[in-house]
Amino acid sequence: MTALDIHNVSVTLGDTAILDDISLHVAKGEFVSILGPSGAGKSTIFRLLTGALRQNSGTITCNGQPLAADQHGFGFMPQRDALMPWRRIIDNLTLGLEVQGISRKQARTQVTPLLAAFGLDGFARHYPAQLSGGMRQRAALLRTIVQNRPVQLLDEPFGALDALSRTQMQAWFERRWHAARWTTLLVTHDVREAVALSDRIYVLSRRPARVIAEMHVPTPRPRHGRPVRAESHAIEAQLLEILLDQTGELL
């Protein structure tokens, strides 16, 4: 079943064409990545989905329903964690539920059992500034998940982390995802991350962004914690070739 369907969508801001006839879909329980060079307009797709922007043409449907301005079918995790520094971790986690009109007390009861799985046990009363980058990122992810939206949108969620924490977080995240199967759309410019996490990858061109390739990643899960399979390496190489042709530069 298709959870999200973006059909022939184009966006022009002023005179600049940002998205040019983009079509992509995400099935229920599927992990799909959008991979593209920096500034390609990957985040513009998220801005469309979160209602911050309207497309000039094309249709977007979520669970078969056209995306209305007042409909919020997505849990959104922004590039930086966007945790409110003045709220304790627990109060950051309940933000989405409070916005939905759930009382703070009830929201806390709902969130507290999930703390352990996200490695936040014992940190509920801490402020974001007291947590490491990886923990903050896990908190931001949990804040997204607890909203219980049909589709999770992750905008380069590990981009701000150092290389070691990033690898650690990807491994942790893949395990969590494997257990819960959230329908997920990830935006990234990290080829290895896309291959490590996704079922399917769309490659975007430089601006104006078009879909120039779609790749399946058949590597069995869980993928982390074992040697990287030859098939993953082959896909990474193929993706890099497509992307580097694009920018016309060699690494």
Partner: peptide, 13 residues
């Protein structure tokens, strides 16, 4: 922080 506002808008605030 505009990212916090974007986040809240995405939550339907």
């Amino acid at each position: 922080d505009p990212e916090i506002e974007d986040l809240m808008r995405s939550m339907g605030a």
